[in-house]
Each structure stands twice: as structure tokens, then as C-alpha cells.
Design a protein around this nucleic acid. Structure first.
Lengths: 340, 340
DNA sequence: CAATTTTGTTTAATCGATTAAACCGAGTTT
DNA sequence: AAACTCGGTTTAATCGATTAAACAAAATTG
């Protein structure tokens, strides 16, 4: 590898001080520099293929123009889309994104966080896993950050969220309006509040409509054995004496497993079971009954998270910002009105 | 934000020099340091919540333990999986990944590359877009890098690839063996060699089997208007006097559009058209005739790319490594043998 | 016991940039 | 002509760590 040229090299080759080179290349001290000298310096910089050593600059300025992003798993389409939009928004403002997947594991989460903090990222956008509340709390006053998708109600943090309660409520009302009477839900068994809110939206909507939320109609599954537990949950919902006639899924991954199950067992959608899922995904379009889904405004959320973060990087002690976006119910064939 | 503690702070608080603190925290000069002093230093480091300033360390050591990854678009499942495995493999070796999406745009590609180089990433893993050959060439002797998925036959670079020719050949032979006689392909109209190799595998297999590669049987589409052109290509293939009875898709995205088209137009798979696609994707499992697909060993490719890159970071002037993996044909319902 | 080693620690240069402050010579002002 | 301004440039400190080399005191050796 050939040695990189430094300001010093340019200075030596041009016969000036490094300070002058720095001023010229950064367009500082505008009027005060001899145009000819400036031109010679610029020409030499190009000739020697100079590029700023950001590491050195960062050390001096204590700004890296890097933001850290930690999501559950970049290979989940929801995370990937979020990552992509965040990347674009950050890029627009001259920031680079450093990424880490936590796998919902708080130990791993801490490890990634440590790595990011050691690298002096200017700020963080985080989607925290279960049991990471103290960890997140410890970041306060350490580094600017914004939570996205998930949050801790007891922590007053900057956050950008979906209205999970409202979205689930809306989805449930939609099914009721379409004539379904035995509505079930499969959601994660998780301490994460945003998921609990989805369950709450579901039960509240049922209660308000005077439809009994029969026991067992809310099935909770563990992320660790998702496929098996989702299949079991489907059996539980559809196998009862009065089987469910519609099911809401707490995430696209749950829905994916559930739809495969329905397909393998020849259960007709929406005839035997209408479906609604959180998180729209392309994949569902290939199913014969494309899935009605709650679409999150991922792009808006990403842009907003970046905006809030950068504001907090620029300026300390801003008031906490908590933004909640409504989900949009995209109605498709899987929840077509029930034939009477 | 509270000020971060530096070595100097610990040194002052403990009453020793920064050098000693550094030696202790890095476990250098093992036997030579007074155990009690070492303990005091360590205790103070914990108490003051010290974390290494990687920026400063990197400036001195000229190692960032960061690798740059530039793929087409992180929100494509293939890219996402690749990114995920690369992240894991890098993490295992103590490296962090900085990511960028190029959108197949060489200008953007250069911009990302510049940002990564300015940040002194120790090495790069790249999936280059069309027309970036000179750009890639200019990286030689500048920074260690490995190409993944794509390559330039005229450049002797480290690379980790799929055997695109062989995979397409295999897919075509499979269709022939299953009794299909009018096989078509939709592939990208691109200067990227790895894509051309897929076309070549297709045409060669047909030629060898004595089946005429009828004109128009290889349809090329542009990434810029993929949906429209894919639909048109499908019409072209299926609408001819002797319509195609099987189609191979050059990528999962093309396949996605094509399957939607088939679905919307009620064309039976595999009855009217058998299908095989490059790049296995979950989504295809929801289609009534799950797609036979060429599965790339993404994980192996990621691990290998990281291995080669790190080797080249550790040591200069290693011989170029070019690894090609076979694709695996996963046979599913979409290419079931043709009824005679 | 003088010479040498060993142990434990500090000094100081360095990485590559940024930037306040100093400097110098040429013009201007009074 | 002394004092001042200003354009153009350099000096030098600094960011926070690393590390070769120097150093002092204690322990060992011949």
C-alpha cells in the first residue's frame, strides 16, 4: 500500500506551512490568502491525491460525523428498510452510519454499544431489546440518542414510534366491521411495551364492541421458537369449539409462519380465517389472498429520528422529543368482508 | 453531556503517568508493573467509567478495526443477508462494519467510497456497480479490498463469487430434464459480467441439448423500469406462437415482478409456465407453487470475503485470491416435471 | 563493594489535523 | 517619522492515546 499524503507532505511540496494548507483546503480565512498560493496548494493536493484523514480531524474537533444505528436484525425487511432510510437521511446531512445487529440479545447489545461509543460516534439511533432499560438509561448525559420503534415508558428519551395501540385498535375494528366475530391475535410474549400496546389495542377494541375477548384468543409466542409456537398458536385459535374466524399478527415474521401454516394445511383465507398483520411486506403479495397490513411510515420515522438526533448533536439540553405516527391500514383480500 | 475521562484523567487521579495507565489497561509490560499500582489504576478506570478513545488510538496506530461494506441496496434481501453475515464474521474478529448503499449508481458509489477512505477503514468489501471498473482499479495499492458477488474479468482482484454460469446451466438442464422444451429467461440488460454469465449458462445448456434457443427467448430488462419491462418480457415469452413453457429469472426481484404478473393474469405454474429463479427468498414460499431457486451460499461467501480481507489487512502483497462457489438448486413445485 | 541487572515508572516524541495567536513587511494614517 | 492597519503566513499548542527510550532505585552478581 502506498503511503497516504498528509497536509505536511503538501506543505513540504509547496513550500508553505501546514497551517496554510489546512486553511486553503477548508476554505477558511477566505479573503486573506494569496490566490496564487491557494491555487498552487489546491493543485498539489489534487496531484498528490490528498484526502483528509478524518481520524486526525475528529481527534482535534471531537466530531466524527458518524452515527451509530443498532437494530434487532438487519436481515428483517422492516429493519432493512429502516436502516436504508436512515442511511439516506444521514447521508444527506453529511453523516455516515455505522450499523450493528443486536439479535434481541442485551449482552450483544451492550457490546455493540460499547464499540460505537469507543469509536466516538456523534450520536445513536437505537431500537432497544428487552431488559436493556438500565443500559439505555446509562447513555443519558453520555451521548445524544433517539429511540426508534421501541421505548421505555419510564424513561424520558427522544423517541420516534408507531402508534401501536391505535394501529391494533384500528385493525381490530376493521375486522369487526367486516363481519368477523371470533377475532384472535398472535403476538410476541415480550416485555417490550410497544408490543404490549398492540395487544392492548386488540383487547380494547373487542371489549368496546361488546364482543367477548374469549380466553385464549390472545396467543403469545416467544421469538426464540417462533415457528413452532406460531403453528401451535394457530392450532389453538382455529381448533377450539368456536374457532377464530380472523387473526391479527403482531409482526410480519409471525404472519409469515402463520401463512405458511395455513397454506400447508389448506385453510382458506379469508373464508376460514381472515388475516391482518403488522408490517407490510412484499412477500405477502404472492399469497393468493394478499394480506391486509398495518403499514408503518418507515421513511418518515427514519427522517424524523435523524432530524431529532442531529439537532441534539448540534445543541445540548434540547427538550425531549417524542413523536408517534399513526399506522395506515392497507386493506387487501385477506380481510374481505365475511359472507353472511 | 458529561466529559469523557481520558488516560490523563486517570493518571492524575491515581498519581501516575499516562504511560503507565496505558500499559496497565492494555496489559502490556506484563510482569514489570507493580500489582498494587495496576489494581489501583484499573479500579480508577472502572470508577471513572473510562473507555478508550478509539479515534486517538487509531491515529497513533493507524488501525481503525473498521471495514467498509458497499452493496447495491441494503433493503434487498440478498444484500441484507450478505450484510448480516459479514457483520457477524467481522465482529468475531473484532471489526466493526460501516455500511453504504450504492443504488447501482457509480457516482454515489464513489462518494461512499471516498467517505470510507477518509475514515481510514482498514479494508473494504465491495459489490461494484456497472461502469466502476476504473474506480475499483484506482483502489489497488491504496487499500485492501475484496469484491463480492460481482467482478471485472480484466482486473486481478480478490473476489468471492457465485458460479453464475454453472448455476444457470444447472437450472436450465433441470428444466430440460423435467420435460420442458421452450425455455426462456429474463435477465438484466447489464454490463455486469456476473449477470452475463447467467445468460451464457442458459444459452449454452440449451445449445448442448439440441434445443433451439429460439430468438427472443432471452429477454433482457433494465433495472430502472424493472416492473414494466419484466411484465413486457413475460408477455413476449408467453405470447408467441410457440410460447415458452418455462422461464428462468436472473434475480429474485425480477422473479417477484414476474410472479405477480402471472398471478394477476391467472397463468398456472407450472402448468403453463414452470419457473426457476436465482436467489432463494422466503417470499416465494407463499406462492401456491413455491419457486425452485438457485441458492447462493451467502454465509460461506461472507465469511470467506471477511477472511480474505483480514488476511490482506494483516499482511501486504499476498497473492490474489479468487473464490467461486457453486449455487445449489433447490427444487420446489414451480418446476415440477411436465405432464406428457 | 563496584558493576551489572532487574524492576517499576516517567519522559517525550509521535500520529495528522485544527486554529488561536504571533509575526512580518508593506501601506496608511496622523 | 512614529504609530497603526492589514494582508499573508507561520508558530506552536492541542486533541488522546501509544511506545521507544531514558531514568531511578532496588536487587543481584562476581
Amino acid at each position: 500500500m502506498q503511503k497516504r499524503t498528509s497536509l505536511k507532505d503538501i506543505a513540504a511540496a509547496t513550500g508553505v506551512s501546514t497551517a496554510l494548507v489546512s486553511y486553503v483546503l477548508n476554505n477558511k480565512k477566505e479573503g486573506r490568502i494569496n490566490k496564487l498560493v491557494a491555487e498552487r496548494i489546491r493543485a498539489m493536493a489534487v496531484k498528490m491525491n490528498y484526502r483528509t484523514n478524518q481520524i486526525a480531524r475528529s481527534l482535534k474537533t471531537s466530531r466524527t460525523y458518524t452515527i451509530g444505528l443498532v437494530l434487532a436484525d438487519i436481515s428483517n425487511p422492516f429493519s432493512a428498510a429502516l436502516a436504508r432510510y436512515i442511511e439516506d437521511a444521514a447521508d444527506q446531512e453529511g453523516y455516515t452510519v455505522v450499523f450493528g445487529s443486536s439479535d434481541e440479545n442485551p449482552i450483544k447489545y451492550k457490546k455493540i454499544l460499547d464499540a460505537l461509543l469507543n469509536r466516538q460516534t456523534d450520536g445513536l439511533i437505537l431500537s432497544p431489546p428487552e431488559n436493556s432499560e438500565l443500559l439505555i438509561k446509562s447513555l443519558q448525559h453520555q451521548v445524544p440518542f433517539v429511540l426508534i420503534d421501541r421505548y421505555f415508558p419510564t424513561l424520558p428519551t427522544n423517541q420516534v414510534l408507531l402508534d401501536n395501540y391505535g394501529s391494533a385498535y384500528q385493525a381490530t375494528r376493521h375486522l369487526i366491521a367486516a363481519g368477523y366475530k371470533q377475532i384472535g391475535m398472535i403476538n410476541y410474549d415480550s416485555a417490550l411495551v410497544h408490543l404490549a400496546e398492540r395487544s392492548r389495542g386488540f383487547t380494547t377494541a373487542l371489549a368496546e364492541s361488546g364482543l367477548p375477548a374469549a380466553p385464549g384468543r390472545l396467543q403469545l409466542v416467544h421469538a426464540t421458537a417462533l415457528r413452532e409456537e406460531t403453528e401451535l398458536a394457530m392450532k389453538n385459535l382455529l381448533g377450539k369449539p368456536t374457532p377464530a374466524d380472523a387473526v391479527i399478527f403482531g409482526s410480519n415474521i409471525v404472519a409469515m409462519h402463520a401463512v405458511k401454516y395455513l397454506k400447508e394445511n389448506g385453510i382458506r383465507v379469508p373464508g376460514q380465517a381472515a388475516l391482518v398483520t403488522f408490517d407490510e411486506t412484499d412477500a405477502f403479495d404472492l399469497f393468493y389472498a394478499p394480506l391486509t397490513a398495518i403499514r408503518q411510515p418507515i421513511r418518515k420515522m427514519a427522517v424524523e429520528a435523524v432530524r431529532i438526533l442531529l439537532a441534539n448533536i448540534e445543541k445540548e439540553n434540547l427538550p425531549v422529543e417524542q413523536v408517534t405516527y399513526p399506522g395506515k391500514l392497507i386493506i387487501r383480500a385477506s380481510s374481505a368482508p365475511r359472507d353472511q
